[in-house]
């Protein structure tokens, strides 16, 4: 958990980090994209079109064009918003030379229908039930 002071308001931001060995399992299963240059993944007020998972590099989260925090290896972005169809309160920008995995809504729905003992389903459910809402 990370705390940031923003003007007079204290904003609490929680980010879910996938831990080994699930980290390696997901890395072997998910497609990834190498971002050579900076790129906006989604804007403030939008629903992410896929969920993102940082393999290498960094994703910056901005509000009102001010950087609020950065996500690094193993951290997940946008899954909760994608599944719940909620707009994000921040803009997500991937930094140059980052490798980002992604998981689409159809795949997420398929995984969530799997048997309760499925380890990937368990991991996704953990992310979805975590307190952060980025």
């Amino acid at each position: 958990m990370i705390r940031y002071d923003h003007k007079k308001m204290k904003t609490k931001i929680d980010v879910f980090t996938i831990q080994p060995p699930m980290l390696e399992t997901l890395e072997s299963l998910l497609d990834f994209k190498d971002f050579k240059s900076e790129s906006i993944l989604y804007y403030e007020g939008q629903i992410p079109i896929v969920a993102y998972f940082v393999r290498e590099g960094q994703i910056d989260l901005l509000k009102n064009n001010r950087k609020r925090m950065s996500l690094h290896r193993g951290q997940v972005l946008g899954l909760k918003e994608l599944v719940n169809q909620q707009s994000s309160g921040v803009q997500a920008t991937v930094r140059p030379n980052s490798i980002i995995s992604f998981i689409d809504l159809t795949t997420v729905k398929e995984i969530l229908k799997r048997d309760a003992s499925d380890s990937i389903r368990t991991a996704l459910n953990e992310v979805l039930s975590s307190p952060f809402v980025f």
Partner: peptide, 11 residues
């Protein structure tokens, strides 16, 4: 906690 809104623009 950072709040998000349900998507009013959903179609």
């Amino acid at each position: 906690m950072q709040k998000t809104n349900s998507n009013k623009g959903s179609l």
